[in-house]
Design a protein around this nucleic acid. Sequence first.
DNA 1: TATTGTTATACTCTATAACTATA
DNA 2: TATAGTTATAGAGTATAACAATA
Lengths: 153, 153
Amino acid sequence: MPTHYNGTAREKRALNAWIKFKRAGITLGSRIGDSLRTFNLTESQFAVVELLYHLGPRNLSEISEKLLCTGGNLTTVVDNLEKQKLAKRIPSKTDRRQYEIHITQKGKKQIEKLFPAHLRRIVDEFSVLSASEQEEFSRLCKKLGLGNTNKNK
Amino acid sequence: MPTHYNGTAREKRALNAWIKFKRAGITLGSRIGDSLRTFNLTESQFAVVELLYHLGPRNLSEISEKLLCTGGNLTTVVDNLEKQKLAKRIPSKTDRRQYEIHITQKGKKQIEKLFPAHLRRIVDEFSVLSASEQEEFSRLCKKLGLGNTNKNK
DNA sequence: TATTGTTATACTCTATAACTATA
DNA sequence: TATAGTTATAGAGTATAACAATA
């Protein structure tokens, strides 16, 4: 979808980049998300379980920080994971306000079964880019994600 | 968030690119989405109204094709736009199964009020990249979005 | 007082399948 | 028979604000 907007070159460049970015996000997201849905996991749920698998137990605050979502939200996602017995809450011994969220054995097995196919899918999607293009792409995404935090606008 | 995954260089490269991509999508999306929410528009609703504004009336099939969502889904989004009187359904004269979705005067005003700020936000977010980086980024996103459609894997 | 997490509330999105009306 | 769109259904995510328990 071209922009159909008559702005300055600078505006058109940014708008075009944003649109391409969003569309790539939708299409890749749905292609990659499909491979998760066959395991009865939503992307949010997968993100949490995968984080626990690779980083170990974390409390809700830490997870919400990593995954950039609100606390009340994460309660729901973790609730749904507990229903599926893929994660569990364990009260913290040091701070009785906190829970540590742990991945369960079933969750580990699920990730181990699912991750290779998931990874294959990702490698496949990115194989349209050369190695150096992928690296450049990562670099640009990172820069965009960090934003102009030190520009103090 | 680094990948914490010990795979081949190829796998790590793709996984890293995917994670950076997703995170940039979340952070940029929320920063840019905020500017829409102040106008009581969700991103989906904005996408539809903006499309109608810039491309003119379209029927539901055409919109769902452009925005990559399902039909039943779009019914809901357009319903919500009609409630806000930002869009309206007009029965097609040539094919009585179809509706043309039109933007309303109120919708046009809304876009005209909202779009400059929205655009400024996007230009600002992308200003962390140089002009040529933005162009390279668009190119890479486009390539990713199209996927390996002619690889017939 | 501040923090961790839950609850309550309410809405939006999303998909699927069955359905209506029309072509 | 096929197509355009709605309806019904159901679930998942999202945010906000008020709240309880603990620090």
